[in-house]
Design a protein around this nucleic acid. Structure first.
Lengths: 218, 218
DNA sequence: GAATAATACTTTGTATACAAAATCAACCCA
DNA sequence: TGGGTTGATTTTGTATACAAAGTATTATTC
């Protein structure tokens, strides 16, 4: 019953949850879009029960919201909400920058630099999708460098929620190249000897990033 | 069907979720304790379906974990994990302290002080449960004073997850009184003119608090 | 008496069925 | 024509039933 031969450890509900999460992160499901239990059930060829379970959990994660009207929808934010969200994200990423700076191991540094290389490659090839993936990996690598799984999870959660909006700001090759340059600068600061420099660098990076996001979501 | 007369907007599943969350936060359900769907269903006088929904969402929130063995359990952490968790919490609470300090409105300050009054009353009455509730309310008031709902949610989530462990450290009346005094000091710093003082105050408070938690969970 | 196999009993996951609530639509009356 | 009301339809929430996967227990054999 498992397509890759291994024993299926995850239930149908969990499978649906991760597929949906993927669809949302990739922008296949737009913010505000409504999700119909029955339609999803028939799409996955199951009953409503596991679908409901998946939707329920995604709602608990804040990826979906139970709208004031009917049905659950992909979370959607006003500019005001977006601003608050990015403020929170900026704070968290700043913490990550400081901790990463203070605790950086060679392995962590190598992972970060490797991700940055992937970003550069994707940007030069103007491959938007690959760039977004590499960019995510880079930030995850920084989170991981904090050596604190809870902070990692925290930061990752935010990144998931803001994913659809950040994606919008990276349209042209110039956007990608500019982003790489911004990261180059950021990493130098994180690798510096001064954690305050790292924090300030991350703050600056996030502010720049957010300005582009706001411009793209106006 | 609603105790406060207003129309009941929440489903049975949501009701069960919040009751369970409350039980966990209050330490009524111990870390590691197993939750049986069928037993809960009969306890609440409902079928397994809404219970499963509640458990599923609580799992998504990280309050419960689906153990390697059978059934879901209240999340349980090693000392190492606890330390990492509190480190994350300290960082977040520090952010809250800074933002609350910078943005404090009269209303927010009044809410915080009112919660502190409740803490004092409960401590003097040596009412452990009431104290825990009031203490939670106090911290939530500080989170709310950041005027950022995402940071509020973030901090609240952590507080939920660490609830059962923090509960343990408050056994005797002396514990409660000491906690009130610690908060008194903290609030003075949050209400001060200097946000760095607020941050340092919160760091100190969290460190003290954590030390007691670690001692109680050893 | 110990180890392994077989069986019974939990427990979990999914499906189906049904009831209640909300939305939509048509209709009627002013 | 407009506002509201009633009826129909969709949608959500809950219950029950069933099947599959574990876990424990008993029995049997060496």
């Amino acid at each position: 019953m498992d397509r890759n031969g291994t024993q299926t450890r995850e239930s149908t509900g969990q499978r649906i949850e991760s597929v949906l999460l993927d669809d949302i992160a990739a922008g296949l499901l737009q913010p505000g879009e409504r999700l119909d239990e029955t339609k999803l059930a028939s799409r996955f060829g199951v009953s409503r029960t596991p679908v409901r379970e998946a939707l329920s959990r995604l709602t608990a994660q804040g990826v979906l919201v139970t709208g004031d009207k009917r049905g659950v929808r992909v979370a959607q934010y006003s500019r005001e909400e977006l601003a608050q969200m990015f403020e929170a994200m900026q704070e968290i990423e700043s913490i990550c920058a400081r901790l990463a700076n203070q605790r950086l191991t060679l392995l962590a540094r190598s992972e970060i630099e490797s991700a940055q290389d992937d970003c550069r490659t994707a940007a030069e090839a103007a491959d938007r999708i690959a760039y977004i993936r590499a960019n995510e990996a880079l930030h995850f690598a920084i989170y991981r460098a904090t050596d604190n799984p809870y902070i990692f999870e925290l930061a990752s959660d935010f990144r998931r929620k803001t994913g659809p909006f950040r994606a919008k700001k990276l349209e042209t090759k110039e956007d990608l190249v500019a982003s790489v340059a911004s990261h180059e600068d950021l990493l130098a600061k994180i690798f510096s000897g001064d954690s305050q420099v790292a924090v300030d660098g991350m703050r600056k990076h996030m502010t720049e990033s957010f300005m582009r996001v706001l411009a793209a979501n106006s």
